[in-house]
């Protein structure tokens, strides 16, 4: 009788009920702590990226740029007509370029601090996108990750926690209350997670096409690349077995990330390996910024509640000290 009732329930269930798990996946309201932490690091990195462009700005943009506006137009408008567009490819005035970069850096800082977060998140993303489009030939994975994260931050309410906005809100209302859970936080976080899965999947597929990732020598040849080396990793050559295991572990971790990051019992393992891989890239291969931002992107898989609990424990420990 029970099974008959169940069958009748199933038949009577609406089309929307079947989609409910998917809708919950994208729209179940959640707190903003995960996005807030990603916002702090991404905003700081945006400010740092623009600061570094400014260290040699004349070489990167303007009339004396290494890749000048004429070449930019030849590449993006004459050879092929692509959709990369930036007003910076039209500007030759150094004061205007300086103003743009300073504004972008300030927007990054404001994003990190969470002041007028809704506006500055869009501004920081847009200004950085304009710079990125102009800097053809000088970009790498860092720019891809920063643009990705800042774009998805525009969707969520990352300013609801750990921000000047939240502090001002609390001060004006005179209440200490938890920020309201919102569907847009979940929605933004899900897109970061899915995009990250795509990145690792194709990163793994790309490596599978190379014989060095199969014969176990890729770790050595990455360590032996003088241009990338920041700390000596050539000692790894004394143990070909370790080098080979690390090589294969990297490939299989990247390939399986999109599947194994979701179950609760494999997630800590995948995040732990992410910490090792990107920490290694940051320390040994000199890509501190890129390695760091990949770890920041991985934060999307840490629940807001866990981060909030950690922050409470941290502040309690600080007070007791």
């Amino acid at each position: 009788m029970q099974s008959l009732n169940k069958l009748s329930d199933d038949q009577g269930s609406s089309w929307a009920d079947h989609w409910q798990p998917l809708l919950d996946f994208f729209f179940q309201p959640s707190n903003s702590h995960t996005l807030a932490l990603i916002r702090i690091f991404t905003g700081s990195m945006i400010a740092y990226i623009h600061l570094v462009w400014m260290l040699d700005l004349e070489a990167f943009m303007g009339p004396h740029a290494l890749v000048d506006n004429a070449f930019w137009h030849a590449l993006h408008r004459e050879q092929v007509l692509d959709a990369k567009w930036t007003y910076l490819a039209l500007v030759e005035s150094m004061p205007l370029i300086w103003a743009h970069e300073i504004l972008a850096m300030v927007a990054g800082l404001l994003l990190a601090f969470g002041l007028k977060t809704r506006i500055v998140s869009i501004l920081a993303w847009f200004l950085t996108l304009m710079t990125v489009h102009r800097m053809t030939g000088m970009l790498f994975g860092l720019d891809q990750i920063v643009i990705m994260l800042s774009m998805y931050l525009c969707l969520g309410r990352s300013g609801d926690s750990w921000s000047v906005d939240a502090w001002l809100q609390r001060r004006s209302s005179g209440q200490i209350e938890q920020p309201e859970a919102s569907w847009s936080n979940t929605f933004a976080t899900r897109w970061i997670q899915l995009h990250l899965c795509v990145i690792y999947l194709f990163g793994g597929i790309g490596k599978m096409r190379g014989d060095m990732w199969w014969d176990g020598s890729a770790m050595w040849y990455s360590a032996a690349a003088y241009e990338y080396q920041s700390w000596d990793l050539t000692w790894i050559g004394y143990s070909p077995m370790v080098a080979s295991i690390l090589t294969h572990m990297t490939v299989f971790w990247e390939l399986s990330y999109c599947a194994l990051i979701w179950p609760k019992w494999t997630r800590p393992v995948m995040l732990g390996i992410a910490l090792m891989v990107h920490g290694g890239i940051a320390i040994y291969l000199g890509m501190i910024t890129f390695g760091f931002m990949m770890l920041v992107a991985n934060l999307a898989f840490v629940s807001p509640k866990l981060l909030f609990d950690w922050s409470l424990a941290f502040s309690k420990a600080s007070r007791e000290r």
């Binding site: 994975g141 891809q144 795509v198 990145i199 194709f202 990163g203 790309g206 490596k207 096409r209 190379g210 014989d211 060095m212 990732w213 890729a218 040849y221 990455s222 690349a225």
Partner: peptide, 9 residues
Amino acid sequence: GYFFFAPNP
């Protein structure tokens, strides 16, 4: 393409 250090260093 997301081909970091791929297909080979």
